[in-house]
Simulated assay, not measured.
Amino acid sequence: MTQAHILIVEDDPDISEPLAGFLRGNGFTISVAERAEAADEVLAHDDVDLVLLDVMLPGEDGLTLCRRLRAAGGPRIIMVTALSEPTDKVAGLELGADDYVSKPFDLGELLARIRAVLRRGPIADEEPRRPGAEPVLRFSGFAFHPHRRFLRSPAGVRIPLTGAETDLLLVFCQNARKVLSREELIKLTRGEGFAISTRSIDLLVSRLRRKLAGDDPLADPIRTVRADGYAFHPEVVGE
């Protein structure tokens, strides 16, 4: 089985060196870059499956690099940073990160997060659908491609989704017309023990709503159930 290649983008060697050793000991191929420019060089020459990306980098910061990588359809990304406010976490996820781990972190937890993200597979470029390819979920005129992380609007417009938005919409589609509490949404989208606040879920729902309904509240497919959570009310049909 081919070893997954992880790129650690971290300017503090006291963090990157022991982390690299730990991950190599768990069967991964590891590269380390201290700045965005060095990360670009690695990505240009090697196939990288996942980037562990610090936010506070010298020069180009991690959030800007995250945006660039996702726009180019780059590898999976886990933000690893000392910024721990819910709005900071949501900002990273909204820019396309697949997960977010706060410093100081437990190595065992980080390893579990890495394996969970890698199980999602690579981010595929859009291509014509083939027999046996990923399912397409349809609702209210939208076509949702969860593996390729985008929506096709009723007007045919392609709407890109971040990893967090994709996970949330997929959970809604799989549980259409059910009321899900904020705690259930955290568990279903991020897994057991994920340190994200219910306020972060509210912010993420708000961002997803804007992509689904724009400024038209009548077109909003997500209903807020006071004191209980959210319900996705359209009928969902899979192909």
Rank of each mutant, 00 (worst) to 15 (best):
H145K: 06
D167R: 15
E60S: 02
T81E: 05
T64I: 10
E85A: 15
L212H: 07
S140P: 00
L111K: 06
V9K: 04
S84C: 04
S84K: 06
F105I: 10
I186V: 13
R76L: 12
A36Y: 06
D202A: 12
E34G: 15
E239H: 12
I196H: 00
M56N: 13
R223I: 10
F150D: 05
H145N: 12
G96I: 08
T2H: 11
V225F: 02
P160T: 12
E17C: 02
F139A: 05
S16M: 06
E37H: 06
H233M: 12
P234Q: 12
P131C: 05
D216H: 09
R68L: 11
A227L: 12
L69R: 13
D220M: 11
N26W: 01
I15M: 10
I159D: 11
H147N: 13
R149V: 01
H45T: 15
A231I: 01
L212Q: 09
A176Q: 14
G121C: 03
V236N: 10
P135D: 11
Q174V: 01
G27Y: 04
V9R: 03
P146L: 05
R199G: 13
R119P: 01
I123G: 03
R130D: 04
L170V: 04
G238I: 15
G121L: 04
G92W: 05
E127S: 14
R152Q: 13
I6S: 06
S84I: 00
L65E: 03
R67V: 14
D167V: 03
V237D: 07
E134R: 07
D14R: 12
D216V: 13
A213V: 09
G59L: 06
D125R: 15
I8C: 04
S197W: 09
E41S: 14
R76A: 15
K178S: 13
R67D: 15
A133N: 02
S140H: 11
P86L: 08
E10L: 07
E109D: 11
C66T: 10
R35K: 14
L118N: 04
L69K: 12
M56L: 12
G59Q: 08
D11C: 08
I78Y: 10
